[in-house]
């Protein structure tokens, strides 16, 4: 059974149709890539899965459970984590606090406990710090920047901190919107390695949007192609690469005789 399934998703804003009847499935421990030209509706799919957009039609199933009507914060608590195309870190906080924030849904401290910071609240913060350090900061190799404000970081590092924050959400499914966009070759390689490690060591399911075809070919298990809000092809990476519709969508239709 698939861990995450999107069925017949349709979304429009006013008269503008963004998605029509898109379906896709991601199995446990799979890396699913969504590709397509700019404006094809890729990010809208992630936004629907995360709950930021409400589709007019269609269902989203997580572990067989219908989550289409669930609020974004409840979905996050279930284990849907997200990174963003245009980095969405909290600029007023340090790297460490940004990562800790990811664990929000799994913590129990309430308003009163927080004000007193005594006993359980304090223990919870200590345990969280240890978890974040050992499970995430070590893994992503960002020890040296943990106390810096995120605004001071280079672009590539900010992307890495976003991944760290998503991991702190203890996700089952990681939704990544262009994780290597704007990165140099070395940074791209690091990020691809991290994504593979996440899948292999932690058994996470990853749904990612990417334009970098080398990365797609290297790490993804399955590829879905969308154009004009519709799914036009899907399959293993090498199959998809050779698919005529995909070539057409990416390179434009060849005119007869041209």
């Amino acid at each position: 059974m698939s861990l995450l399934a999107v069925e017949d998703l349709s979304l429009s804003f006013g008269g503008l149709r963004v998605l029509s009847e898109v379906s896709l499935e991601a199995a446990q421990g799979q890396i699913l890539a969504i590709i397509g030209p700019n404006g094809a509706g890729k990010t809208s799919i992630l936004n629907c899965i995360g709950g930021f957009y409400r589709p007019q039609h269609g269902r989203i199933l997580f572990e067989g459970r219908d989550i289409t009507r669930l609020s974004p914060d409840r979905r996050a608590a279930l284990g849907l984590a997200r990174t963003f195309q245009n980095i969405a870190l909290y600029r007023g906080m340090t790297v460490l606090d940004n990562i800790k924030l990811g664990a929000h849904a799994h913590l129990r401290t309430g308003l009163l406990g927080g004000l007193m910071y005594w006993g359980p609240a304090q223990r919870e913060e200590m345990a969280l710090r240890q978890e974040v350090e050992e499970e995430i900061i070590d893994f992503l190799e960002i020890e040296s920047i943990r106390k810096l404000p995120v605004a001071a970081l280079a672009y590539g590092l900010q992307k890495r901190v976003e991944l760290a924050r998503a991991l702190a959400m203890r996700p089952r499914v990681l939704l990544m919107d262009e994780p290597v966009a704007g990165m140099n070759a070395e940074e791209t390689e690091d990020m691809a390695r991290f994504i593979l490690d996440i899948k292999e060591e932690r058994g996470l399911t990853v749904v990612l949007i990417e334009h970098d075809m080398n990365v797609i070919m290297d790490i993804s298990d399955y590829v879905v192609v969308v154009n004009f809000g519709q799914k036009i092809a899907e399959g293993a990476p090498d199959q998809v690469q050779a698919h005529p519709e995909v070539i057409k969508a990416y390179l434009g239709q060849k005119r007869a005789g041209a």
């Binding site: 909290y90 007023g92 906080m93 606090d97 800790k100 924030l101 664990a103 929000h104 913590l107 401290t109 309430g110 308003l111 406990g113 927080g114 004000l115 007193m116 910071y117 609240a121 919870e124 913060e125």
Partner: peptide, 12 residues
């Protein structure tokens, strides 16, 4: 204290 915990982080 509040800003050491998840509540303060959530505010920011």
């Amino acid at each position: 204290n509040l800003f050491r915990t998840r509540v303060g982080r959530a505010f920011i």
